[in-house]
Design a binder for these strands. Structure first.
Ligand SMILES: [Mn+2]
Ligand SMILES: [Mn+2]
Ligand SMILES: [Zn+2]
Ligand SMILES: [Zn+2]
Lengths: 135, 135
DNA sequence: TCCTAGTTTATAATTATTCTAAAGTAAAAA
DNA sequence: TTTTTACTTTAGAATAATTATAAACTAGGA
């Protein structure tokens, strides 16, 4: 993803392409594979991989702004920290509790044959499959 | 579940049947249907349904002791609070984000036809299906 | 260039949870 | 039964993740 695309992505989401947002967006979106992270891990990686300084509040603000704009999704993982995901398609996860690592599973690689119908008056929004791993 | 069974359940888990543990255990386990709760909701319900007073720390201690003993399980739900579950069998959940309510799905009511194999060197510990509901 | 709304930032506040250590209690030992 | 012991409860302090605040800064339009 080129710089011009980052600008477009931000602009089209109503987000000013500030120095901080552009750097964080480049870090998050200029990659081939899905990236799963917490705010803490992102903070550390940004400190290591960039020369700029980011206030922790800015990382929170930016991640939330990106999520709200639909550029990030949130994955529910056991533990206190919130996990974010650059993969915003419907997909599933392996979770390795040893390493606290998430691994994507393409939606097509999971086929559910039978599922109960939603309770009265409710509809199914989506189905998430979470596969816990062990050694 | 009778009082004597509560005592057995506690004793056999190496937990002294104190006044607090017995009351909380009766509240949690003397019911027919699964009960899902957070420490906060349990605290409020205990305050309403019993005459005893419980320190919040005691509720945390007790819930963790019960979980460690295998009498409660933990369910991962989006949000900051930890959800506990009196259903300790393998099962799945509907989640109604409007009401923040969990509804059990029997493991037999979900049949998965296809699942990817675990990454190298890892095995599948368990598969959790989480069905988000909407109106 | 000037203005303004949006943004960043340091810091404080909040919230859920865990820790601490003193007081209380269940059950084993005497 | 009393004594002793380890376990438990408790109020309050501490911690950790996140959110709120408000002052300083900045992007982009007028
Ligand atoms: Mn979580
Ligand atoms: Mn949660
Ligand atoms: Zn993912
Ligand atoms: Zn359940």
């Amino acid at each position: 993803m080129k710089k011009i695309d980052i600008f477009k992505k931000l602009r089209s989401s109503g987000l000013r392409p500030t120095k901080q947002r552009v750097e964080i967006a480049k870090f998050l979106f200029e990659r081939d594979k899905t990236f799963h992270f917490t705010v803490e891990s992102l903070d550390k990686l940004l400190a290591k991989k960039t020369t700029s300084k980011f206030a922790l509040a800015t990382i929170y603000n930016t991640v939330h702004a990106f999520k709200k704009a639909g550029h990030l999704s949130e994955v529910e993982v056991r533990g206190k920290k919130t996990y974010f995901d650059t993969n915003i398609t419907n997909h599933h996860h392996f979770y390795d509790s040893e390493t606290c690592e998430l691994i994507d599973i393409d939606a097509n690689d999971v086929v559910i044959q039978k599922i109960p119908k939603a309770p009265n008056g409710k509809k199914i929004k989506n189905v998430e499959v979470f596969i816990n791993l062990k050694n």
